[in-house]
Write a protein that binds this DNA or RNA. Structure first.
Lengths: 334, 334
DNA sequence: CTGAAAGCGCTTACAG
DNA sequence: CTGAAAGCGCTTACAG
């Protein structure tokens, strides 16, 4: 078995209290004892037991992160940012894939509670009232990333979806496009669906284009959905010269579909995406898209959570800047 | 504060030992007490404290996973499989991004030890002697995924890299290609570099093609590297009709570069990748590639680790089948 | 069937 | 500057 604090105390000829003090940099021992203790630690290759420590401190130095899907490029970039910030601050992160399933989510929340995590990050998706209640019962800090909620006690970090969609559409208009379509998420999705559609329409209206005539299809935020929607769009509204796809995977779907149908991008059809996944630079032509700083969002969410854990002070929500990344899929029209 | 086992014992009018028994489904109490206890549990919304339990059981029901990069598509698919299997068996997974940095890796190993994880999965990359030693000192089960090692006590689950590369090359030959190049990883990479290059050359040789004349470039397994290598290749060996890129990101780089240079894929240049990331289906034409069952590898690695943890029996290594996925980037030559 | 008690490996008043 | 002791929330022989 591994050495315990008792073993080092015995070897150093001091009490465990003293060992604990030097290990935790607390005051109260002579330089000589410090050295004796450190020698014993080294000799026994002693490593503290974080579980025992956690039991008395009521702190585990670990946070839980809930994703609707861990394998998506979107989630992995956020996770990357979270992991980075957490590790810098000495926290571990346990990943939970809810698969957008209520039962799994509840199950995970329970596990996280039993494991006494110090805080939770909830990513992309609606924080249901039900979850909020159990979170409240757990009485631990929570922060939202790439989503938001009405609950005042839960800060979020995200981009302004309405404005980002507005800017994507305005960009297309500025480049001379007039017949613009959108492929977005489900209209009833209050986080990433509705606001982007509204932003898109607002941009149209502000530029004197009839917002209700523009086709808006649902691509479910996935590649296949983008392909299907593009196919339908191209059939029903061939006059469209540009499409705003509210997710890069869908945008790539549009590009693939156009290529398959012999429609040149951007010469015949312009496409602007949303997210700026690594994917966006890997297609040809490289995808013009409105960037969300995903890793940064993850980092900031983790930083806020940890600050909340350690200071107890409430943290403010934050809207991070988005940015249209001009690449190769939008052409200029006269 | 949350209720503890003492609270429920008091409310149920029994001892904590009895509460513990019913909670853990151990024998030794009447139906009546069981009900009294369960009622108290419900009334107090009692949740056991896994940290306290872990301290006495010496089991935390959590495993650590080390990745060289958490945000890569490759790692996320493996992670997805691991998370799934782990969650089914009641284990949590903490993710560690080593960033291929020795110091971070050592740091993480130490943290995982202090947090008393029950086992560790080490993904893709060489398990250095140094790591092996600290792992040995920790005395906990380890399994390797998408990599392997010489250490008999550490099982691995991966694909046969040599054979997979061989099959990719043989596929190209079968489709009529004779002037074939490879874009692989660093030749000194014993896991994913050298074996694939050797497999590629073996296939050439077995089919009567001079293996040493075929260009083999290093694309560092990344998109940019694939682009650079493709550019150099196309300049230096324009006679090449097909390239085997030993990683999908690199393959996509080849396709992008070809498109940029006006070289038609697959009409003028055929490309076969390696991995079968989700990416592979998202480009146009969709990428022909040799598939590794990444999620399955993750699942199996987790299953082996957990079996090892729970039974104490050693687990065998496993080579999973690969498969060439015929899609749209390889043409047939006469 | 049930409970008192020891113990898991730490931290932290408290007393000196 | 230092140690004895209590306690964190559980589990598990042991005794009855």
């Amino acid at each position: 078995m591994s050495a315990t604090i008792k073993d080092v105390a015995k070897l150093a000829g001091v009490s465990v209290a003293t060992v604990s003090r030097v290990l935790n940099d607390l005051p109260g021992y002579s330089e000589e004892t410090r050295i004796r203790v450190m020698n014993a630690v080294a000799e026994l290759r002693y490593q503290p037991n974080a579980i025992a420590r956690g039991l008395v401190n009521k702190r585990t130095q670990t946070i839980g992160v809930l994703f609707p899907s861990v394998s998506s490029a979107f989630s992995s970039e956020i996770l990357h940012g979270i992991e980075e910030a957490a590790q810098e601050q000495g926290y571990s992160v346990v990943v939970c894939n809810t698969a957008e399933d209520g039962k799994r989510t509840k199950k995970y929340l329970q596990v996280l509670r039993e494991k006494q995590v110090d805080g939770i990050i909830y990513s992309s998706g609606v924080l249901k009232e039900e979850y909020h209640q159990t979170l409240q019962a757990m009485a631990i800090p929570v922060v939202l990333v790439a989503t938001k909620s009405e609950y005042a006690d839960i800060p979020y970090v995200k981009v302004d979806d309405h404005q980002a969609a507005y800017d994507a559409c305005a960009y297309l208009i500025r480049r001379g496009h007039r017949r613009i379509a959108m492929i977005g998420g489900p209209a009833h999705d209050v986080i990433a669906g509705e606001p982007r559609i509204a932003g898109f329409r607002a941009a149209l209206a502000d530029h004197g284009l009839p917002p209700d005539e523009a086709p808006v299809l649902d691509g479910r935020f996935i590649f296949a959905g983008g392909c299907e929607a593009a196919e339908e769009l191209l059939r029903q509204a061939p006059e469209v010269t540009a499409v705003f796809a509210a997710g890069d995977e869908m945008a790539i779907g549009v590009i693939s579909t156009a290529a398959r149908l012999g429609i040149a991008v951007p010469a015949q059809l312009s496409v602007i995406g949303y997210d700026n996944l690594k994917l966006a630079e890997m297609c040809y032509p490289p995808l013009t898209t409105v960037a969300q700083p995903l890793a940064e969002m993850g980092r900031l969410a983790a930083a806020k959570l940890i600050a909340r854990i350690e200071t107890g002070q409430p943290e403010a929500s934050e809207i991070l800047p988005h940015q249209v990344m001009e690449r190769g899929t939008v052409s200029t029209r006269e």
